[in-house]
Design a protein around this nucleic acid. Structure first.
Lengths: 240, 240
DNA sequence: ACAAAAGTGTTTTAGATACACCCATGC
DNA sequence: GCATGGGTGTATCTAAAACACTTTTGT
């Protein structure tokens, strides 16, 4: 039982898989940061890697608050869909030699394990303004189909996030975050197709979503398009 | 960024919601422990509470290994269904005065936050042999419908575990853990009814499970029962 | 022969799938 | 008038739900 008096030296972090939807190209992308060197303009001493944004938790904040803080610092947007999905804590997850360099500049004990609680965030790429700065030298959006090698076990974390969003049955929750306030049924269908990674039949799609009824028909149509203008829709407010 | 050199003092624990199925009474129960006093036979100085089994993680073990260790120490069974489901880390989750007493005997810093990674385990009550000992003064099974007030935020943790098992669509995974190697369709139906907390129609139930096909028909029947003997079935092996 | 649980089919309903043409607009 | 994406209906199949009686055994 004495053991309990020791086991105290755990770093705990929150990492965010930020998925952004690019409506124009109809792609899902992940927000990556390029790790910062130990001090400004010393980046050349370093081999910076791409990583997902994350940070150690602060003493007085909950995990949800930490995730919101990281997201806010990075993308300058509040109140988005944000959900904890898994915790990664293998003792070796920060022991890869490729990561030693970065850790040595950031940790009192660079060899100590880091347990990380992973969150999934959904954002509209066109609506946010990610800023390199506190967290990163640079930020970059990368298609979920072409994710580079990432720091630590971040590839595993991203893969798990993608599994989860694809398994998620209540996709209108996802739609709420990734579409503008008013949108056409084609926009909605495109989004669902990207998430599910398959094509959907237009008529069947419209039938099924009109049954499930989380949509309201606005009384506004597209203007200035060179084809039949589409009806705009919006999501019903969620009760509770 | 200096903050990172501080945030080191986190206790990390793993807590296990052990759900046991009692086939005879057809009930789902949760395994609870009664907290141990600071030393043998000093329990009377204490107000021991019920809690779910958990422990701080050790330096060299993964979260999954910690969960398996806790479960093994407690119920003397290996290799059961065991799944991480959520991490609880609110700064106040161990700050309730009711818990101060226990913490003061177990922690170098009794006020430090404890982040706990929660696991769900499924066991057949008749197959295991939980032992009071290392973890607990006593152990107790309690029906999921009558769970007492527990230490820390353990009521919240148990509630979340129950949500998850009920939402879980692949219930045959659950069945594998909670039924004997050979079983009748009525046994399977009883289990599903308890988990879903509703009655199922016998004919429809049999139709649906025979479609989904994860069962094999054994060539053995019940013996010595005072009614028509039932056919035995088994689960197909899962391929990886 | 009776008590007890096992076992079995049909009908109805709702949702999923497959599939092809006309419509409104800008240029 | 033509190019562009928007919008619509029907037929078929599959899955879910509702519902009642006969069978096999032990005593």
């Amino acid at each position: 039982m004495k053991d309990n008096f020791l086991n105290y030296n755990n770093y705990v972090s929150v990492d965010c898989v930020v998925l952004g939807y690019n409506e124009v190209e109809n792609k899902l992308q992940v927000l990556l940061i390029k790790q910062k060197g130990p001090a400004p303009n010393t980046a050349e001493l370093f081999k910076p890697q791409y990583a997902i944004p994350g940070d150690l938790i602060k003493e007085d904040e909950s995990l949800d608050e930490a995730a919101a803080r990281i997201l806010e610092d990075l993308v300058n947007v509040k109140g988005l869909f944000l959900e904890q999905f898994y915790t990664f804590g293998h003792p070796d997850r920060v022991k890869d030699p490729k990561d030693a360099d970065w850790l040595s500049t950031r940790r009192k004990d660079p060899l100590a394990r880091v347990i990380t609680v992973a969150y999934l965030a959904l954002v509209r790429i066109d609506q946010i303004n990610p800023s390199a700065g506190y967290f990163a030298e640079q930020i970059a959006w990368r298609s979920i189909k072409k994710i580079p090698k990432l720091a630590f076990d971040h590839n595993t974390i991203v893969a798990k996030a993608l599994d989860i969003i694809q398994a998620h049955p209540e996709q209108h929750l996802v739609g709420r975050e990734l579409l503008p306030n008013k949108f056409t049924l084609s926009q909605l269908q495109n989004l669902y197709e990207v998430i599910q990674n398959k094509e959907l039949d237009k008529r069947n799609f419209r039938k099924s979503i009109k049954n499930n009824e989380y949509l309201i028909t606005l009384n506004e149509k597209q203007k200035g398009v060179l084809h039949k203008p589409a009806q705009y829709y919006a999501f019903k407010k969620l009760k509770k």
